[in-house]
Nucleic acid binder design. Structure first.
Length: 563
DNA sequence: GCCGTTTTCGGCCCGACTGTTTTCAGTCG
């Protein structure tokens, strides 16, 4: 897949043209093309070979020609021209808060700034502040931006952000407000979150914000006004709170939830209808015609309310009706859990009892197998012993416990246990934890072909913002999983969330069943299931696409009959 | 650069904030 490669190039063209002061709409067109490529679930080369590049809205003849040129020759003349004369390392400075294209061009043109080091230098010696239009405050801002920039790329996993936000929302409620809600990418349940946005309805703006900034783990207060406050908590994450009047809450929630492309499309629909949308409402002339409720914003545009997880401008607006999405309450059980037998912290019985508390009808215990030495993988004898314990716990707790294994897929695609062992298990989850440096496509395909392997766990092996994952051709895996009726897992552990939403969407479209597994190693981690559900919703999955929404008996027969 | 049966040209989403200005440009979300 060269989608991302091309997206990067178009983004860089956007940056370069912006720096050079090119027409804003041209720049927007390149950025839009980049985004389309990032979101594209199909391989761009497939569309290219089929001559269907311009079938993507946002890709016209100009962009299509450039994609074609690049895929044919590995080069793009426009890109070369765009970055011509711009020192490498200059454009990344556009990512500094407070540093836009105009300021950067000024600093480059007048002071010869070519790098971050140069920039720091002209800040220190005061030359930047003396440029026309600049001043001490602006420079101070850029200086602050530089501090963050150094520690850049610290998007937070949804698994960290959501509990933190819930805690802060509880705190805000103590100031006596009713309506408080997360917004932004957190509300859209994106796998990682940049800024954390919270919205609240009240007439007492400054009072609420004062209270907000006194949150117990506040490290620094960045801003404190009547409608907006901004803090950095001790863990280093920035949280923004906005306070709007009650009658604007729906419009503001819609507005701050985004995504940006989704909102842009809504506003152009509004414009066609002679309406104007802002965070204060939908207006016909000066008259507010919607804005108290989020639903109203959509309905006045002739649209049904769209779940936040879908708001990415990936066709959800044109769809005209709300697709049935899976809900957390549809989940009847967790089928990827580790106990003390391998590297988990709890006994089978403790897990079963906790699962019952969560309202589950069933679970599966899936230890690591023997080659996973680092995780205390179990051998055949220990597996045998565990089966007896599972039978006992099942009788005592009164919840269906499937006997499973998270089976190591080895270098050559062979499996850690023999088939006669696997045949006696209810569920076998094939997984790669070793040989992370090599291309694991072949081994995974071979594992799918084994009729005893029901599921492939965390198929790419990525760890969000820590590890890219092993090499694997997901197109091939999805295709083969579809033909062997092997399920693919959305691993709900917040560092994995693998399959990603994009891959899961593609898998669904190919007819592959999805399993949601917490991969829990202690009771607390079982709660991660909700993050997995978030990914599933972003992937447009319905209840029918996900295996652990089935009743125990239905699941059992799926596992037996799937080949 | 993209787009369109009211347009093949002339539009393209919107508002706040900030700091630098004496009326507005730049940046951000």
């Amino acid at each position: 897949m060269r989608n991302r490669e091309l997206a990067n190039i178009f983004n860089k063209i956007g940056d370069a043209l912006e720096f050079k002061g090119e027409m804003p709409f041209k720049i927007a067109a390149y950025r839009k093309a980049a985004r389309i490529l990032e979101d594209l679930t199909e391989d761009i080369e497939v569309l290219w070979k089929a001559g269907e590049l311009t079938s993507m809205p946002g890709v016209g003849t100009g962009i299509a020609k450039k994609i074609d040129e690049y895929l044919r020759t590995g080069e793009m003349k426009k890109y070369r021209e765009a970055i011509e004369g711009i020192p490498p390392g200059l454009l990344v400075l556009l990512n500094i808060q407070g540093m836009g294209p105009k300021t950067l061009r000024l600093a480059h043109g007048k002071l010869g700034v070519k790098s971050k080091a140069d920039l720091e230098h002209v800040i220190e010696d005061g030359r930047l502040a003396r440029l026309p239009g600049m001043g001490p405050k602006k420079v101070e801002n850029i200086k602050k931006g530089l501090e963050v920039f150094t520690a850049e790329e610290k998007r937070i996993s949804i698994g960290i952000a959501l509990p933190l936000v819930e805690e802060i929302i509880e705190w805000i409620k103590k100031a006596g407000v009713q309506k408080v809600a997360p917004a932004g990418s957190l509300r859209r349940m994106k796998e990682t979150i940049g800024d954390i946005d919270i919205l609240c309805a009240s007439q007492r703006g400054s009072e609420i914000i004062e209270h907000f900034t006194n949150f117990e783990r506040t490290d620094r207060v960045l801003a404190k006004g009547e409608t907006k406050g901004s803090i950095v908590v001790k863990e280093g994450h920035q949280i923004d709170l906005r306070v709007v009047p009650e009658e604007c809450f729906g419009a503001a929630l819609q507005y701050f939830t985004g995504s940006k492309p989704h909102n842009i499309k809504l506003r152009s629909i509004a414009r066609e209808r002679g309406l104007k949308i802002s965070e204060y409402g939908v207006f016909k002339g000066d008259r507010r015609v919607a804005g108290r409720e989020e639903e109203g914003v959509y309905s006045i545009l002739g649209l049904a309310w769209i779940p936040p997880e879908l708001r990415e401008d990936r066709g959800e607006i044109e769809l005209g009706k709300v697709p049935e999405l899976i809900d957390y309450n549809d989940i009847r059980g967790d089928l990827h859990i580790h106990s003390r037998y391998s590297d988990g912290a709890n006994s089978v019985r403790e897990i079963a009892e906790f699962a019952k508390e969560l309202g589950y009808e069933y679970i599966a215990i899936t230890e690591h197998s023997k080659s996973a030495k680092y995780a205390g993988g179990i051998d055949e004898r220990k597996l045998e012993a565990q089966m007896a314990e599972i039978d006992r716990a099942q009788g005592e707790v009164g919840i269906k416990i499937f006997k499973g294994i998270e089976l190591e897929i080895l270098k050559d695609g062979s499996l850690d246990f023999d088939d006669d062992i696997l045949e006696n298990l209810d569920i076998v989850i094939g997984a790669v934890h070793l040989f992370l440096k090599q291309d694991m496509t072949g081994p995974i395909l071979r594992a799918c072909s084994n009729p005893n392997v029901d599921v492939i766990a965390h198929p790419t092996g990525r760890l969000i913002s820590r590890r890219e994952g092993y090499k694997v051709d997901m197109n091939k895996v999805i295709e083969h999983a579809a033909s062997t009726n092997t399920a693919l897992e959305i691993n709900a552990y917040y560092d994995r969330l693998d399959l990603s939403d994009v891959n899961a969407k593609r898998a669904k479209e190919s007819g592959v069943k999805i399993l949601l597994g917490s991969d829990a190693h202690n009771l607390g981690m079982m709660g991660a299931m909700r993050f997995g559900v978030g990914v599933a919703r972003r992937a447009w999955l319905s209840k029918d696409d996900v295996l652990n929404t089935l009743l125990a008996a239905e699941l059992e027969s799926w596992l037996k009959d799937r080949v």
